[in-house]
Design a protein around this nucleic acid. Structure first.
Length: 425
RNA sequence: GGAAAGUUGGCGGAGUGGUCGAACGCGGCGGUCUUGAAAACCGUUGACCUUCACGGGUCCGGGGGUUCGAAUCCCUCACUUUCCGCCA
């Protein structure tokens, strides 16, 4: 969530930036927040004064008892009864207002960076970079779901039987390709200085709140009510939450760069049609995620560095891609700036999103209380960023389709050492 | 799953109703001494809210309660350790 202090000090800017996200009635919502904050502070001052008097009396009572002046002590005790009643009343008012204030703050999305383009939907996203050539496929080329069946490498029917739709079974060289991609992505990240993390695949409620999946996207996560746990929708959640309630003792630790592979679980309620065909959208999929904690002054440089890393992976896999700068209407609730990477799926003749790289500025760190001591001695909120590097199924879909030949599917050179073969046939 | 004991500041560890935001040690920072360093000695050293400021308030695992007053007593939850059970 946005920092109250930031809203107070730079009200106009916050409103302008939130307008990029098309937040309705934003002026009203902000002024309501500022009003609640004023009320809260006034109440707290009153309540603090009452508590101060109570503390003084309590000390006096103690001394009087020691001196044996019981009668005088009793008089003071009577006074505290009044104070207690008053404090209780003030406390109730104050916590009601605080609750309301908190609810309003937490329901307010992150303010997009001022350079984020305005727009209503994905149609308004801006292509900022392109790489590679769309391949010309031969006559009779197949979409990846047919290739999966032809070479018996991904079995959707078997997944339906064992679990349900969206839980495919990878077999033979299909399973091998998954493992190759995971290792390739992890090694590339390690070479780029990311420290590998293998996180739990289930998280508690506090972690869900920390990165913003809760309460916003509760319906998108699989839950285990009996134990109060959630299956992670991305490794971002457990990895970023490593730093929940952490006060870093120096700014020398930046940047903190992590990479983690995990299975990701998403209910994807409401999805249908061509979007969920084959590997396009699954309930369980593998993803390698990069997560960075960075100094506020350098987070946008880091965003560029992460973009470059993701781009290098796609180039090594020889997949044609473009980069979109998401517009205000398409950017996520928690993000200040997001770039989407889409690869060309030659048989489907469509772009598939394979990575989303975002800077959250202090939105997550404010919720998580992720702070650091800056060189000026002040305690500040760190910036968090993350990106997919990369999500497997759509990479696999594009690889299969783009590299198909009459004699099988060609494995890109960078993956051959991991696959142990040059073709799937 | 059953039983017991625990959870205190960056770390270790005192503290069973008031003078405790908390002894003491280590670590960190500043200084004296030294050509420099070490040792020794002296000083200093948590976070948060609020106030222009002085100041005030909150925090001893989380939440609730008893009391004029809670790190200390009670309830509850979480976690840790040990024993038993189960087990990749």
């Amino acid at each position: 969530m946005l920092q109250l202090q930031f809203i107070k000090e730079r009200t106009e800017e916050v409103i302008e930036r939130l307008k990029i996200k098309n937040v309705a009635d934003i002026e009203q919502r902000i002024s309501e927040i500022l009003k609640l904050d004023e009320q809260r502070r006034a109440l707290q001052q009153q309540s603090d004064a009452v508590k101060a008097e109570q503390n003084t009396i309590a000390k006096e009572v103690g001394m009087l008892f020691k001196q044996g002046k019981r009668d005088e002590a009793e008089v003071l005790k009577a006074r505290t009864a009044e104070l207690k009643a008053k404090e209780k009343e003030l406390g109730e008012q104050s916590s009601a207002i605080e609750e309301e204030l908190n609810a309003q703050l937490i329901s307010l999305p992150n303010a997009p960076h001022i350079s984020v383009p305005k727009g209503k939907s994905e149609a308004d996203n801006v292509v900022v970079d392109e790489f590679g050539q769309k391949p010309e496929l031969f006559e009779g080329a197949l979409p990846h779901w047919d290739l999966c069946a032809k070479y018996d490498i991904v079995d959707f029917e078997l997944g339906n039987k064992i679990t349900g739709a969206g839980f495919p079974v990878y077999k033979g060289k299909g399973a091998r390709l998954q493992r190759a991609l995971i290792n390739f992505f992890l090694n590339e990240a390690a070479n780029a200085g990311y420290i590998e993390i293998q996180p739990p695949l289930m998280v508690n409620e506090a972690s869900g709140l920390g990165t913003g999946q809760l309460p916003d996207k509760e319906g998108q996560m699989y839950t285990i009510p009996l134990d109060g746990l959630y299956l992670i929708p991305t490794a971002e959640v457990p990895i970023t939450n490593i730093y929940r309630n952490v006060l870093l003792q120096s700014s020398d630790v930046f940047p903190i760069k992590h990479v983690g592979y995990s299975e990701c679980f998403r209910r994807e309620a409401g999805s249908y049609g061509k979007d969920v065909r084959g590997l396009n959208r699954l309930h369980e999929f593998s993803k390698v995620e990069i997560v960075v904690v960075e100094h506020p002054d350098r987070s946008y440089d880091m965003l560029e560095e992460m973009k470059a890393h993701v781009g290098s992976l796609l180039q090594k896999l020889q997949l044609p891609y473009h980069i979109l700068k998401l517009c205000g209407g398409d950017i996520s609730f928690t993000s200040a700036m997001t770039f989407d990477f889409e690869v060309w799926s030659a048989a489907q003749q469509r772009w598939l999103e394979v990575s989303s790289v975002s800077n959250f500025e202090t939105f997550q760190s404010n919720r998580m209380k992720l702070r650091f001591k800056d060189s000026d001695g002040r305690t500040k909120l760190a910036h968090t960023l993350n990106g997919s590097a990369l999500a497997l199924p759509r990479i696999m879909a594009a690889l299969l389709e783009n590299n198909q030949t009459e004699n099988g599917i060609r494995i890109p050179a960078a993956l051959v050492p991991y696959m142990g073969c040059e073709t799937i046939d």
